[in-house]
Design a protein around this nucleic acid. Structure first.
Lengths: 117, 117
DNA sequence: GTAACCAGTTACCTTTAGTTAACTACCGGT
DNA sequence: ACCGGTAGTTAACTAAAGGTAACTGGTTAC
């Protein structure tokens, strides 16, 4: 009996999976946004509030990155009928699945910095 | 007693660690090269042989990426005194540490593709 | 001496990622 | 009428990543 637990993938499929992951989680802002939302669960994370709190991000980038994250079901976008209208962004249940990944990146990066210095 | 097992890091340090990891492992070719070398341990992995076997990579990119990987101690470069001179590249013991990271990227990427479709 | 193989390097170009600043559109208060 | 707050969008730019093709320099085989 082969193929026991893991859904085995070919080398090509694995490379495609890595590309997918890096495309969705890579770039300058995506993980920053995810981590920010994760650190502010329960709060009203409006567009302006996020932009104020993530230092350096422009409206254009924040808008684009939030759209990408929403398309990938990692972040939810809810329009509130306040006046003026506000939009509340939050990490989804599924979005939480990125944190084990980021943790391995953090651990490896920290260890690597030790190794190199 | 705080700070028990893990070398705790601030949020800033964690973000820097993620940037480090993505800088070193990201890009189009680095993990491809690492995986290729890992699949050909014990063989003589010369520059030309690697270039022939990794489809699509140019001499310029292969040269640059191998240098980056060598600087980061992930790959070793040994000049053989054959005629003509050949250079043997191999993954280092430390280089093996990237594979747990790539596995989490593979797993997440595969799972995500299921989720999205 | 010239062709062919090794290991790269260099200059030039294209594509992608990210930045900057100005703009739309809607609402409420003064 | 105008200002300030909401949530973005647009156009024009710069910077970074990657691709293409020609080239260096050394060695061997013919």
């Amino acid at each position: 009996m082969e193929n026991v637990h893991k859904p085995e993938a070919t080398c090509e499929q694995e490379l495609a999976a890595i590309r997918d992951s890096l495309e969705i989680l890579g770039g300058k802002w995506k993980l920053r946004i995810m981590r920010h939302l994760n650190n502010h669960i329960g709060e009203k994370n409006t567009f302006k509030k996020i932009q104020r709190e993530i230092e350096g991000i422009s409206a254009k980038m924040l808008s684009k990155e939030l759209q990408d994250l929403e398309i990938n079901l990692l972040v939810s976008r809810i329009v509130m009928d306040t006046k003026p209208v506000t939009v509340n962004y939050a990490i989804t249940e599924y979005g939480l699945s990125v944190f084990p990944v980021t943790e391995t990146l953090v651990d490896w990066g920290l260890n690597h910095r030790q190794k190199i210095k």
